[in-house]
Design a protein around this nucleic acid. Structure first.
Lengths: 114, 114
DNA sequence: AACTTACATAGACGACTGTCTATGTTTCCG
DNA sequence: CGGAAACATAGACAGTCGTCTATGTAAGTT
């Protein structure tokens, strides 16, 4: 296995003028990777649940039950979000806590303003 | 064929408190439909090219060449964006002109701010 | 009316994605 | 040390998606 991971996309670099100026293919692909990570109902719910938790952080075991999904499925989605830099992972003992990377969301929101 | 089309998703209705409060499954699915429409490199480029055109509008024949895609493929993507309410279609003679629905993008950008 | 141009629709096909079960890894505790 | 708890990884499978070719439709032109 090759652990190809992954300098998360630099949001600003891939569309310095937002969506108002022509965007090249590589930049568009990077942006799409980021937006694809958000564009899933389960992951949208995950984000909202993490944000709504105490201290705006949650561990996997707190997320499986409200979403009615298996633990591996939740772990998979959290990995997608982590690889995209949209959430952050912190291991404390046996638990792993996830919290939302607010800056990243601000950058993306800014970009979509056109 | 059933022309099931499509009251575009009401952005504000599906996440009135943004991503800071728990989002239910149906709302998350509606949001995902919207974001999936954006989360494709070709469609991101299309949006940027339309915005960068004269009067911020473009017809299909102006978009196939810079994207190096066939006309049906471009038409397909424009349909996806139109169904999501992200661009608007106006037929003038033989040409069809597309322009970006700025309000929609503002709403979505606002929503992602968390 | 016939032809051309601009666009849409239909159908096919390979690639990707979301979910599951099964299993591995790490950490804590008795 | 041995067991349990929390999480990750691997592999499988059905469904979705992006692209193409082929064809249909509508509007303008001669």
């Amino acid at each position: 296995m090759t652990t190809l991971t992954i300098t998360p996309v630099d949001v600003k670099a891939c569309a310095p003028s937002g969506l108002a100026a022509p965007i090249g293919r590589p930049e568009a692909e990077q942006l799409a990777v980021l937006l694809k990570a958000i564009a899933d109902p389960t992951r949208i719910q995950l984000i909202s649940y993490i944000n709504a938790s105490n201290n705006a952080e949650a561990c996997v075991c707190n997320l499986t039950e409200p979403l009615a999904l298996t633990q591996p499925t939740v772990s998979h989605h959290l990995k997608v979000l982590t690889d995209a830099g949209l959430i952050e992972r912190e291991k404390r003992g046996t638990w792993v806590w996830y919290n939302v990377n607010q800056d990243r969301w601000q950058q993306i929101a800014k970009l979509l303003e056109i």
